[in-house]
Design a protein around this nucleic acid. Structure first.
Lengths: 277, 277
DNA sequence: TCTCGAATAGAATAAATATTCCATTCCGTC
DNA sequence: GACGGAATGGAATATTTATTCTATTCGAGA
């Protein structure tokens, strides 16, 4: 057995060693390393059997991993996590408070503000979302022969994420970014649906595109931040999501949650019930 | 033995029951109650023997205490504390599977899942963030004459959002997307910093670019999801953020909160203390 | 101070959990 | 395609941990 003359005795040492050995690991042991790297926190309260199962390996393999890390076995490795846990238990509220108090405009304080804002935004989304309107949006998108996605400036990350998610699910999608200043509005054909994302002050290009699509008779699904947004005039199916701001900035936590849920719901619907054309 | 028809199933219920029975307890059992009241957090990671010793009683006495609390024994009591802890990293894969099998995959349910995942991710970010590493990242970026942003596929929305935020604050930025399949690595000059975002399985292009930058001697700040990401070999300042997943999908709530906080902190620093060149 | 039921300590046992061992598989090399 | 070493799975074993049991102590009330 490996002498544990070099057993990591702190989280930093643990991390260092993990990086060190990660390169030269065979398949199963690499699975252990990856799982541990992504779920360090579970170690304190789990048994080898549980961790091994989650990592998709045998308990014995997991123990060999612990030994490669320099410990005599799992128990010894777990100890450093339990010790650490005992020290930093304070719950979320306390933790946020701690981050906040680390100096007025320190990065950690700012992060705490944005995390709080994200949490609050998600909460208000839960209260405000109209389940029926959401269902209608899913219907419309699931029935589309092609989904056009439009969103610029602050909405662009959302548009890009939606494009990514649809792509992963093999759903035909066109992302209307402004690359090469090409206007691809003529790719909007009958039976297509436009998924537009825009927040006040509404981006002219996005509204223009939506207006064009509406005039051609295409259905529009909008993710926006107010009920009186310009999309309303276009008979769009509107999903309202408002983000709490921190100073002049807003994160996109709630919007992204809504976006991914919408995409996955559409994907699920289409796999059980493919669109006509 | 006490039937556990009334075993507390939440921390609140536990607390309530503890207060209820505390009054009418004989000496040793009272010691248990007092110790537990003062060290509730230790239960998740301790053995009966440890707790009993700390409370100054025999293990058997401690178990009798657990039974008075309404549990069948120590293990059952410990479970609610471990579950509570694990709640921050729930196994959404199985939950979504349950939803599927129960036929309830309505869009609203899915949205609820993603909102919950977002909330949990933000909480775990609060617990995991290393304030000092974050401060180092801000230092590095605030001192950069140019910030290069790299992030593809799932990380691309994050990269786009960062580019948007920096742009709004007049901070010189280049977003290394793959438009036109142009490789713009030669725009990375001395004094520049690369801000790379990538999650497992790590995108080759992003890692390549980071490797190149590292070889040229540029500082790298990474937003990634595991301690053993490839960025560690590049001596990057690494910010770890792990998102809870729903089935095969992950939202980006925590990542986006971190990204915007980072950007705003850099902006604030630069306005009070502009970079040399 | 005696009696009796409740409370307790500690040993004995049961159960869960970690670890080792070995037969089999996998993979690179000749 | 045969060989050999590394890696793996899974059963067997060892260890730790939880729980039960029983003899003893304690303390209130007569």
């Amino acid at each position: 057995m490996k002498k544990n003359d070099k057993a990591p005795d702190s989280l930093e040492a643990f991390q260092k060693r993990l990086v060190e050995i990660s390169d030269s690991l065979p398949k199963r042991l690499r699975q252990c390393a990856d799982y541990v790297a992504a779920n360090t926190d579970k170690i304190a309260i789990s048994t080898v059997a549980e961790l091994a199962a989650n990592a998709g390996v045998q308990p014995s393999a997991f123990i060999r991993f612990c030994q490669l890390m320099g410990f005599s076995g799992y128990s010894e490795m777990q100890r450093i996590f339990r010790d650490d846990y005992a020290q930093r238990w304070p719950d979320y509220a306390t933790r946020i408070a701690n981050l906040r108090s680390s100096g007025d405009d320190s990065p950690a304080t700012l992060l705490a503000e944005f995390m709080e804002a994200g949490r609050a935004s998600i909460e208000s989304l839960a209260n405000e979302i109209d389940a029926e309107e959401l269902a209608r949006a899913v219907d419309a998108l699931a029935g589309a022969s092609m989904i056009h996605i439009a969103g610029l400036s602050r909405a662009f990350p959302v548009a890009a994420y939606l494009a990514y998610a649809f792509e992963k699910m093999d759903i035909p999608t066109i992302l209307h970014d402004k690359t090469g200043n090409l206007d691809r509005r003529h790719s909007i054909l009958p039976g297509n649906v436009l998924l537009a994302i825009s927040f006040a002050p509404y981006t002219r290009e996005t509204i223009d595109l939506a207006t064009y699509a509406h005039e051609k008779g295409n259905r529009i699904v909008a993710i926006t931040d107010a009920l009186n947004s310009p999309f309303h005039r276009l008979e769009a199916i509107s999903l309202k999501v408002s983000e709490v701001d921190v100073g002049a900035f807003r994160a996109l936590s709630a919007t992204l949650s809504l976006a991914i849920a919408l995409a996955v719901a559409v994907g699920a619907r289409r796999s059980s019930d493919p669109p006509g054309k």
